[in-house]
Design a protein around this nucleic acid. Structure first.
Lengths: 232, 232
DNA sequence: CGGCTGCTTGAATAGAGTCAATAAACGTGG
DNA sequence: CCACGTTTATTGACTCTATTCAAGCAGCCG
């Protein structure tokens, strides 16, 4: 999409110098802890979530390889969300000072990071609309499509069949539903012929219908980066 | 919080060179239109919203003086949200190229913009948790507290009494509720002695109780900007 | 094998939505 | 300044969606 200069590439590689394995279920950042490092997720799938006072959990976002995570540490002294691994992961920790150096030396990378922020903002606002204004069935369909699409961006081998890697409890925490109701909605999508399930694998048997049920709109269609400053 | 250098101040003033009045109810950006300018909101109150296929609306965010709006135009060819004026407003339009120039010349401003993105991200994820996991009463209480707080940041004269400037329909579109149910929740908060209403003005009669009802957490408490690169 | 954790299903309940009717506030043109 | 039409607020009755509670089942791992 954008071709980086050799210098830019080197600057980004500097952020990924160190690596750290994170086993499934482990946490790299805990809500209200003092923020330390930020990370680039090298491999695996993670999630950010918050706990409410009544003990319920809201999953805010899923993270995949290539995502920059724990970035809110740039602004806040204390983390506002918990970030934990849904599969065995590898992350590359880096310091805020290293990040500041990248911004100082590479204005085009700064611009690209701002663009990524906007893409994430769009994803969050889409989810906001889904939680605020759509039915349980639409929410479940939406999360299935969204996760399939993001997995496909990293592994072109994935098409209509994929392993979600989430419990129904987790689907519920992401969609604002109870696990019980998630189960019922999955069954309904299955009964209506849009979906098949077996041993944790999902298969879209009628993708169009599923997209209609989910109110799906593709947000990765119209990126426009013509305005970026020159690379260094 | 951060003292800008004279150069930095001048660069930002360049973005605010032109001004344009926007009457109440008018739209500065329409969903799916080709994105053009970005804006700094000089005076007034605006909102971003999206329309779903079934005709329902979700209000994503409220904007106040000083906010940089329509920034998603940096990433997308087409606007993902509608931005319209809730009161008579004045905006300062600027071009992406002007923005790119700021980033190229002033790395610390780039860093500050990224920080602002993170603050907005935190606000959006808070709202996500509210929509996903809290009751109608909590959502209504939360929006009242949030808007009061943001108004107070611009006008220190506001304390427990303020004019919201929203219809109950709009409160509903922001909280994911129907106007009818918003009305019932307002009445309930009133009956429970947390709130008084008259002629569009709200008065918090028991702010602690209201905060408890809303699950309120203060997100503007712990900003940390020690890591920024040097100013130019 | 036994103890988890996750999945599935039913029945009863509660919370929010829908529909409808009325009242109050607002804006506009005469 | 008033009359009229429109938007906004209010309230009741009813419906429906999603939650809660409960029980049984399946798969997995030590």
């Amino acid at each position: 999409m954008v071709v980086l200069t050799a210098n830019e590439r080197r600057a980004l590689e500097l952020l990924e110098e160190r690596t750290r394995p994170v086993p499934r279920g482990a946490t790299v950042q805990r809500e209200n802890d003092t923020t330390g490092e930020m990370f680039i997720l090298r491999t695996g799938m993670m999630m950010s979530s918050v706990l409410l006072v009544d003990g319920s959990r809201q999953i805010l976002r899923f993270h995949f390889a290539g995502d920059m995570i724990a970035v809110s540490g740039l602004a806040y002294r204390e983390a506002s969300e918990t970030i934990s691994a849904l599969s065995d992961c590898v992350v590359c920790p880096f310091e805020r000072s290293a990040f500041a150096a990248v911004l100082a030396d590479h204005p085009r990378l700064a611009a690209l990071i701002i663009v990524c922020n906007q893409v994430e903002r769009a994803a969050l606002t889409d989810r906001l609309a889904v939680l605020g204004r759509t039915s349980a069935k639409a929410r479940v369909a939406a999360i299935l499509i969204d996760l399939r699409n993001r997995m496909r961006m990293l592994d072109a081998g994935i098409s209509t069949s994929f392993a979600l890697g989430l419990t129904q409890e987790e689907i519920g925490d992401a969609t604002g539903l109870t696990a019980v109701h998630v189960n019922r909605m999955l069954r309904q999508l299955e009964d209506e012929g849009m979906l098949a399930r077996e041993a944790g694998r999902f298969t879209f048997t009628d993708e169009r219908a599923l997209e209609r049920a989910a109110n799906f709109v593709d947000r990765y269609a119209g990126l426009d980066l013509g305005w970026l400053p020159a690379g260094r």
